[in-house]
Design a protein around this nucleic acid. Structure first.
Lengths: 205, 205
DNA sequence: TACTAAGGTGAACAAATGTTTACCTAAATA
DNA sequence: TATTTAGGTAAACATTTGTTCACCTTAGTA
């Protein structure tokens, strides 16, 4: 794939986006209009360049609305299924089938390409971090975290969502709710484990 | 979804197949040719039936090659691109190219099947509704809303996100931030318009 | 039997759409 | 400085495409 000018890249991105939204590509006039241009001829030049550079397939001569993006990173591959594996603060943390809510298709550019899942939050312990009861949190599976990270932690088989702080000999799991107390855990507590880091949130109103 | 006749089902399947192969839907004449028919009018009748039975979306009147199958079967079709069209509270609300952040693939079962887009929130006017600066809100385009709905409203070409209340002769747009005042708008204010309803929220940490 | 629904023909019309040409400007390069 | 590349306008033309109307046939139903 050859190098594109800024404008060529913009036009290509516009086509991709239109295609993703509508299920069919834009017309030349729609592209011109989108870029605020009065004439289609400029767009034609750019399309011709994109075609000769191998990024675009134009339909048969004269055929309407038949552009095809040839980039090997189509939107369809970006959509990945993320399992909603259960709840935090709803009792024992096991990925039991009954707790599974299904899955949600999300853009992996946004949600992440690693091992990632969703959990539904129960309770109000993180309300001051604007995480509500019923929200879904996007959790990247990891055991590495830094002070201030919001984590999913396992404590004696109970899952909890808290803000993580490493102190001298212990871990502090801090609720973001002034009515609740921090939890302190010895560093070598065998019943303690970090499941993952909260990277995102989804809510329906 | 209503019951289809054999022929209607065949046409629907043909559209799906064509779409899968080409990335754009067939024209009416291409469908007629595919079924060995000499006239487009028969195909039009079937398309009209498919549309009224809820299986198909036809493009705007007169618009070329813009059929859309509405069946919700495969996961691949559930992933739809939702445009991130700009910001609220960031000045004049126009879907200008420069403000566009791109798009996000989301599960349409979660995000909705209608005309829906994303907006990035700027400011803290809805902080008590746990909507933060930088969050993206999922907006269903509609002008109908109920008291208590969180809406995107246009006021003298400025977009704002507020909680909507209809009062006697006016509309109250209520911030969810105690430091901020409500906005009152006469009901017949020509510079006032509801753009849509906030249905969801996405956040990255 | 009469009526309705489904689906097909033929034809015409209007609008959408692709394409091309000539010309222009600005920026980059030889 | 001259040339080339990139990208824009304006306009015209031809073809594609959607749509509609009148009419027809067949099968099923009241």
């Amino acid at each position: 794939m050859q190098e594109l000018t800024d404008k060529q890249q913009q036009v290509l991105d516009a086509i991709k986006e239109f295609q993703g939204i509508n299920g069919f590509p834009p017309t030349v006039r729609e592209l011109a209009e989108y870029f605020g241009q009065a004439s289609t001829a400029g767009i034609h030049k750019i399309l011709k360049a994109l075609e000769s550079k191998g990024h675009l397939r134009k339909g048969d001569k004269g055929k309407s609305r038949s552009l095809g993006v040839l980039d090997d990173d189509p939107a369809a591959f970006r959509a990945r299924a993320y399992p909603i594996v259960g709840h935090v603060q709803a009792g024992p943390f096991q990925l039991a089938v009954e707790d599974r809510e299904g899955e949600l298709l999300l853009d992996s550019d946004w949600a992440g390409h690693g091992e990632t899942f969703l959990l539904r939050v129960r309770g109000h312990s993180m309300i001051d971090a604007d995480i509500r009861d019923g929200d879904m949190v996007l959790v990247e599976k990891t055991q590495q975290c830094h002070n201030g990270d919001i984590v999913i932690a396992l404590l004696e088989d109970e899952a909890t969502v808290k803000r993580f702080f490493k102190e001298k000999d212990r871990i502090r799991l801090q609720p973001e709710n002034p009515t609740m107390q921090a939890i302190y855990v010895p560093k070598d507590d065998p019943g303690f484990r970090i499941i993952g880091k909260v990277k995102g949130l989804l809510r329906k109103f």
